[in-house]
Amino acid sequence: MKLDTLVRFQNMDRRWIFLGMGIAILIPMLFPMTLPFKVDERVQSLYDAVEEIPAGSTVFISADFDPASRPELEPFFRANLHHLLRKDVKFVAATLWPSSPPLVMPIFEELTAEYGKEYGKDWCFLGFKDGKELAIKAIGENIPETFPQDIKGNKIGDLAVTRGYKQAKDFAMIINISAGFPGTREYVLQIQGQYDLSIASATTAVSGPDYIPFYKAGQLNGLSAGMPGSAQYELLVFPDGPPEGVRLLATQSVNVLNVGHAFIIILIVLGNIAFFVTRQAEEVE
């Protein structure tokens, strides 16, 4: 191959790469493959921790994600709610992300209705609170003072599900669905160690490697990272496939990653071949 062809290849219009990436995503969606996958230890540990919660207990859910991280985290969020609700575990939920309430509230309503749970008695959503680390610290100290009302404007004292649950440490577990800051890192830093809390985290792939040290140090009792983590959790909650009307979006999508990753690896290899051949040819000249 001529040198100038290689140089041109290296400097090709990046829009061809964009087009290739688009095709690499669309093709496996239009012609799906269903390769099986295994559950890693961190997700299994998260599932086991939820499994051990006795029926009738209450957990605190901090749903800290937005539409941008929805494909990675919503499947976990839904599967986790199915898991909690079918075990008869109650929950009090809140969020530190302003764009989360309109996203999570309909999901809470849909799934709690499916399991016949009553708002205020079996679950409640306290809504959004700003202040980041300060809000987390306040959740650790005093939830009724921090959230005097729920998302619907009810006084927190009027909700049966919150009675007897004043601080984060009163809950059986904290489940944090975290798309970044503020999220799992801040929960671990601010209140996990101080109150010796049991925290499970589902996070994006980008944050996954960052939180593994927390898991290994025992500061998290389970960790699900990115779409594969969500798909593995879906598999654990629905080992025999989804019931009617339930869509396992991460399971459906995780195999699309095969082609996407393969495309990126091919790009890296081609880019390097072109780079080294060009460099060698230039050195010879």
């Binding site: 995503i25 929805r70 980008v206 779409m227 999508s253 990653l257």
Partner: peptide, 22 residues
Amino acid sequence: GYTVMGRISLAIGRAQEMLGLD
């Protein structure tokens, strides 16, 4: 590697909506 996975997942989410798979 994890970042690539995360970014592709976001694009998959959009494609799901455009194809009606969600």
